[in-house]
């Protein structure tokens, strides 16, 4: 049994939320560079240049690349031989988020209640996801996710007769409807299978993969490629102004499901995909 103090978790979260907002990770930088080599529309090229210039300024000046510094998604993979000591883990994570957003002068975008709508002024609550895994390590992944792209996400419980063609139609329609609202070129996270809630979680977890890394199953990797090609036929382009690069990548995560069901979830992410991780 390896002991980890929850304060270490709080410190890591406070650091990661800032790093994520100031410095675009290498996989997203590579994907944007590839987009620049693929884009044919002059206005699309101009937008991509602005996006690159923007993240360069953010990194140099240590300022947020986008004013929507997001809701803090904190994914923990806790080794089953880890013993967390020193207090309440969830409280520590929220403490880390509050400190990171205050220190980093990030925008406080979280409300106490969806109808009352009073700002909590420390960007809590964080969205916390926990997986128990073998081993004695603790992996923390942080994704600071903007509201504009999240709002364009959809979930549908399709009938099994819809099959892959029906799923594909729903996914492409969702991306088309998102258009410029979600700040393309997009990263498209897709969940297929599970049940209502697991399906949405699969779509979210699909976003955490290294951008452009194919699904390990070649059949699903081919479907990711097929979807990317269909999405890039839409003509939406960078910021919806027209072009050939509407999405940077499509990631699919799958899970078995009930004989009655074909759940499909599409979680949309903007070009400023801010994710960082650390292992304690």
């Amino acid at each position: 049994m390896r002991e980890i103090h929850v304060d270490q978790v709080a410190d890591a979260v406070a650091r990661l939320v800032q790093e994520a907002n100031f410095k675009l990770s290498d996989d997203v930088v590579r994907a944007l560079s590839q987009a620049q080599s693929l884009e044919e529309a002059p206005v699309g090229q101009t937008v991509l240049m602005q996006i690159v210039e923007n993240y360069t300024i953010a990194e140099t000046e240590q300022v947020p690349m986008c004013q929507d510094t997001g809701v803090a998604l904190v994914f923990l993979e806790i080794g089953q031989d880890v013993h967390l000591v020193g207090g309440d883990l969830y409280e520590a994570i929220n403490r880390g988020v509050a400190r990171g957003y205050t220190e980093g002068r990030l925008r406080m975008s979280m409300l106490n209640d969806p109808i009352q709508r009073v700002n909590t002024r420390d960007n809590t609550p964080a969205m916390i996801y926990v997986d128990i895994v073998p081993g004695d390590r603790l992996k923390i992944k942080v994704d600071t996710k903007g509201g504009g792209s999240e709002n364009m996400s959809q979930l549908k419980m399709l009938p099994p007769s819809a099959g892959w063609e029906g799923a594909k139609q729903f996914i492409v329609e969702t991306v088309a409807a998102a258009g410029p609202n979600a700040c393309p070129p997009l990263l498209v996270g897709v969940g297929i299978g599970g049940n209502f809630d697991k399906c949405a979680l699969l779509a979210k977890k699909a976003l955490l993969r290294e951008v452009g890394s194919p699904h390990p199953d070649p059949e699903w990797a081919a479907r990711e490629q097929e979807l990317l090609e269909e999405i890039n036929k839409l003509g939406v382009g960078p910021m919806g102004l027209g072009g050939v690069v509407t999405a940077l990548a499509v990631h699919i995560e799958v899970m078995g499901c009930h004989i009655t069901a074909l759940p499909v979830a599409v979680n949309i992410e903007c070009h400023s995909h801010r994710h960082k991780e650390v292992t304690l």
Partner: peptide, 29 residues
């Protein structure tokens, strides 16, 4: 940034206005 409703597009024409966009996500720039 993003699409507007048909009502907004009609109001731009009726009252004399224009809808402009800036590059989303380029907050530092």
């Amino acid at each position: 940034k993003g699409y507007r409703s048909d009502e907004v597009k009609a109001a731009l024409q009726e009252y004399g206005g224009a809808y402009l966009v800036a590059t989303g996500g380029a907050g530092a720039l």
